[in-house]
Each structure stands twice: as C-alpha cells, then as structure tokens.
Design a protein around this nucleic acid. Sequence first.
DNA 1: CTGATCTCCGAAACCGGTTTCGGCAAGAGG
DNA 2: CCTCTTGCCGAAACCGGTTTCGGAGATCAG
Lengths: 371, 371
Amino acid sequence: MTVQIKSTVDQNRQMRVTISDVSDALGLTKSTVSRAMNDYPDISEGTRLKVRRMAEKMGYHPLSHAQAIRTGLTKSLGLIIQMADHDAHRPFLAEFLAGLSQGASAEGWTLTIAASDSASATETVFNDMIRNRKADGFILPRAMVVDPRVSLLRNAGVPFVLFGRCPDQTGCAWFDVLGEDAMADAVVHLAKLGHERIGFINGGMQYTYAPLRRDGYLKAMQAAGLTPAVAHMREGAVTEKMGAAYARDILRRPHPPTAIVCAVDKAALGVYSAAAEFGLKIGSDLSVISYDGIPEGAHATPPLSTYAVDYTASGQRLSALLIRRIKGEAPEALRETVRATFLDRGSAGPPRLTSDELMRKIAAGGQGKTI
Amino acid sequence: MTVQIKSTVDQNRQMRVTISDVSDALGLTKSTVSRAMNDYPDISEGTRLKVRRMAEKMGYHPLSHAQAIRTGLTKSLGLIIQMADHDAHRPFLAEFLAGLSQGASAEGWTLTIAASDSASATETVFNDMIRNRKADGFILPRAMVVDPRVSLLRNAGVPFVLFGRCPDQTGCAWFDVLGEDAMADAVVHLAKLGHERIGFINGGMQYTYAPLRRDGYLKAMQAAGLTPAVAHMREGAVTEKMGAAYARDILRRPHPPTAIVCAVDKAALGVYSAAAEFGLKIGSDLSVISYDGIPEGAHATPPLSTYAVDYTASGQRLSALLIRRIKGEAPEALRETVRATFLDRGSAGPPRLTSDELMRKIAAGGQGKTI
DNA sequence: CTGATCTCCGAAACCGGTTTCGGCAAGAGG
DNA sequence: CCTCTTGCCGAAACCGGTTTCGGAGATCAG
C-alpha cells in the first residue's frame, strides 16, 4: 500500500538538490550556504556570489517546509472565503485568486485557502490556520465597518492586509480602489451632460466602501451646485433584485431623477429592469453610471457605463503588500489606493425628458407592469 | 524591523504544544509518542491510548511542516486554476473551492491553489509545485479528452484525481456526475410530454463530458423510438452567445424541433434569447431542458428546468478521494459517480404548435429581428 | 531451568534547513 | 613586533517531528 507512495517520494527526493549538495560542491558548510542565501552580513561578497551562482546552476531552491520549522514562516498567504457573503463578488473570484496567486508566486510564496459558512466558523478556521501555521498572514477581502477578522488577527499578532479601508486604522495595511472618486466622477460626468436630479443607490452598509462612496457622491453633488435629495438615495443594494426595487421606488417619487449613480453593477442591472418596466430607455430617458465592471454589464443593452476595478491587479498588489508586512514592514507604509477606470459605454447620455414627461411615462408604464 | 515578527512567532511558539511536551508529560520518549500517534504496530494498545488521550487533553496537533521534511508529505492538496478556460464554470468556483476545502480540512489537510494563464504556464506551475513539494497531489477540474495535465502527473508519479472521467483510465482516479444519464432523462421526460423532434446543443468538445452527454442523448432518442436529426444537433456551445447562435440556426431549419436539450445552462440561456427573437414562448412553443444548475437559470422567465450539480459536494468528494489516493489506495478503487438532480421548473411542457405553425412563427419573428 | 522468540519501548540518527558560538587569519593601531 | 579588532567562516546545536536499530523484559517451547 504505502510502497507506491514511497517510490514516488523517493523519486522526488532524488531529483531535489539540497543545501548540502550545494555546500559540498563548493567545499563549504551548510551554514555558510544558508547565510549566503539569506544575505547575512557576515558573509563576504565573494562567497555570497559563488554560492548564489552555484545554487542557480544546480537549481537549488530551499524547501519552504524545512525552513518553516526553524523560522516559523511557511511562506504562504492565507485566504478565507466567507460563503455566507452575498455573491456580489463571486464573478471576480477567479480573477482575484489569479492575482493573489501571481503576486504570491512572484516571490516564491503560495496561497492557501479555506472556506467557512458562518461568521463563527470563520473565527474557528482562522484560529486553526494560525495555530497550525498554515499561513504566515492573511488577506481579508471586503473590509467591513465592524470587522471581527481584524480584531482577531490584531489580537493574535498575525499580519494581515485588507482589501478595502478600515475605520480603526491601527496596525492595518490595505489596498483599495477609490470608490469615492469614482462616484464623484460619475456625478461630474452626469452634471456635465446636463443632469440636475441625480439619484444614488448604494451597496451594503456593513462594508467600509459604502459610506465612502456615499460621501463621494454627496461631495460632488454639492461641488456641482446640485442638491442631493433624500428621496433619490437608497442604500444596501447588492443584488439585481434589490437594485430594481430601489429604482422603482425612486422613480415613482414626485420629481424623479433623470440619472442614477450606483455603487454596484448588480444594482445597476436592477435599474435596467426597473426602467424597462416603466418603458424608459436607458441612456436617454434614464442615465445610469455604476461601479465594478462585471462582465454582464458589457452585454447589457445598452452596455453599462461603469468604473471598472481590476481584480487581478488588486490581488497581485495585496499579495505583495502582505508579504512585505510579514517580512516586518510597518503597516503604515503598506497602504495603497488606485483609481477605478471609467468605461464609457452608453448608459449615460444627456437628459431627454422634462420632469413632467418623465413622471407621466413612469406613471403609465408602472400601471402596465403592476404584478 | 524583524522584532515585531519575532515576537509574533514567539507568541505562537509558546502557545504550541510539541511532541516533546506530550512525551515529557507521560514520561515517554518522542519516538514512542510519534509511533503511537501514527498507529505503528509495535506500540501496545495501552500506551497508544494513553498517548492519544494526553495529546487530546493537551491539544497537541503535529506540525505538518515538521512532518513533511521527513515524510515528504505536506498534507496539502493542490489545485491549479486555468484562467484561459472559458468562464462557464466560474459561477461555481466559490462553491467548488468551499467543497474542496471542507473535504480537505475534515482530514486536517489544506488546499493550496495557483493560477495560470496558458497551457504552457500550467505545466510550469505544476512542475514548480511538485518540485517544491507545495502539494502532495492535485485535483484536476474539467477532465479533457487530451489532457496534458494527466500525462504530466502520471509521468511524474504524482497522485491526482480528476473531476470528470478520463479516456485512458490507467492510473486515474475520478469523481464525476453522470451527465449522460441526465441527458437521457431529459429526452425521456420530453418524449413523455409528447415531443418528437428534440434538438441537442452540446458543450465544449475538448472536455470528456461532451461525448458522454451526446451519447446519452442519442441512446435515449433511439430508445424512445425517435430519430435524432443531424440538423438539430450542434456542439461546442459554452456561452450564452454561442447557445443563441446555434438555437437560431437550428430553429430556422425546415422542420424545427419543439424541444432542445442543452448540455450546459449557459447555452440554454442563449436558447432563451433566440426564442425571444422569434417570438417563441419557452415552455410551450419551445421546451428546454439543460444541465448545470447555475443560479441565473432560476431567475430566468420561465425558470430553467435543469439537471443541477452540487459543486460543493463534488469538491468534498474529490478532496476525500485524493487524500486516499495520496495515502496509497489504488486508483481503481477511487472512482465515484453520482446522478445530477432534476430541477423541474417550467421550461419544459407539452408541445403546443405543429411543425408548420412553428415554422411560420419563426419565419415571421426572424424577419423582425434581423440584425 | 535454559535458550529462543516476541512485545514493546528507548536511544539516536535523520530530514533539510537556520542560528548561535567560537575561532582563525588578516588588518589596524600603538 | 605585539595586541586588538574586524571579517569571515566552520562546528555544532536546534527546530519538531519520523524512523531505524537494538535491547530489556516477558512469554514460550523444550
């Protein structure tokens, strides 16, 4: 039974070149080679080079598990996927993972992942991975306003990097996309087109991005001399269904907006279907600008104008930052933000209808579609 | 700089209970404890129990990295995500990963993942992970008719498990869902409803599931006394767009089918849009039964009747099988298949139109929608 | 009662690295 | 010329486990 495995292991064992192979080839000791590889100061430049070259030539890569038992570092990054989360980010999971893994393997690190169904399970999984040294640090996707993961890790003294910013910044490193700038740009864009009543549908308020995007929207409205109407603002839409419900709600108000900014693409697609119910044409009767860059947006009619996030690149940066964090850099030095890129695709145009025309159309369309 | 990390490691180090702690507590040696934990035959039942109990009580879990340097086994499963693949399986990635990670952690193993953009990159990534012992075995999603991953791993003597069956079965363990049975059931179901002309749109022919599902369709057609028409069969549709194109193509033929079986949900959604173009009502003018169980199917109108796959459960089984494979069980003993579960949701009903009526409707609808 | 066999465990080597300690030789200073 | 550093490296311990080897004590056959 075990024979088969043994032979496999032996095969690989023969193939592998160990530190002793390198030291023997050079007439040095293991310790010298080790220190040369790890840039110890008490190794002369000459031997450091000799060792490096020989290691390269022989194809020597130190076995991370062997290093781990002494150093305590596995050279692996941990990611825990919370299945309880709504699937708003699922479409990007593959890209995100690819980015993370690329960023990790660029430095010779690996990505270890686990999943959990509930918040309490998440805690267990974290503790388990920490205790058994499955990962040297963690990537925390979707920073939350109250984030139990942060307190747990901060508390345990384990390095981590957030995807998204953090209210209590102490000890937090992060990477984030400036959603507030995107929302502000969207308002400016729409204002330039001539829109005056611009609505806003925000995403999940438990995430830190939501208040930021709302502030971006509000600031830009004020800067453009427009008054944001409470009647035109909603929050908590992370699915198409919720987006549609909020859009219907907003559009039925007395002086409906001619444009709606969405914090999340899924919600924007909901706006599309609400508009369809009312017989409104997106891009002329009602303009929409959104945020995320999900593939479905490109296939909608008209294609959704949106501020797209590069999730692959984000993953890469997060891995890079986390590795530096694990290596000891201060969290304050490990905070990066980038701007989303605007994809102007046709769901935003100059307003065509007056307030009254819009109201009439909505009233008429709304009747036909009452469920 | 390093101080912070050191303290962290030290903290964890204090917390961890090592094998020596256990052996000291019992007045035994490390070697005895080790053998007791690993069920060596030369340990008496009494001490084995004493050791086990003390280990449990003290919370001792052997450090997998420490074991790895002697045994060569990391206790981690590898998964390489091919980004070049079309995104037909992306919606399930999260569920699949959750299943894999659950199956792994149930045995105290972990899941290490990497991504690659191209087929050649995949080979590099595999070799890298094998050489550096990042994983003891691999899960290969989406078995292909000609699968370079299989030859690579077979060749390197590294254990693996396929998601999907394999033409050259030597040394292959697998888990698969019986797509052929689902396709056959779909045909039977439609035939019972009264359909006689049933079309078939297959998925990507590079995957092993495609020929299987086609055979399932063909066999059931013959068994039902129906003649499958070449004009009503297409293959290679893995996206909504392709499904729509093929459906248009099939429906424009002289005697169009009253029902279409799809090997992939995405393609079925394409059939929906093609039907809409022709003014055909799904579920009455045109029936559709598909396979996969993607969430979008439930939200389509009418909801898509489909044979759903439980990707979480599949992942769990795959992990379990791979672990047993790594532990030395013969691949022949590690082959499992399950049936998909039919979700009868309303996209399949009795045929309403005669062949001529259908043709007329299609001809009329087709003109209005020419692009 | 003795010798052979079997059970069960301890001692020590080992896996592949890292890290501490100490010492040799060359260079600096007096 | 002699001492004191300093630079550089080897020897050996160590990390947390596994595995080989051998031997003490119990059991059994003669």
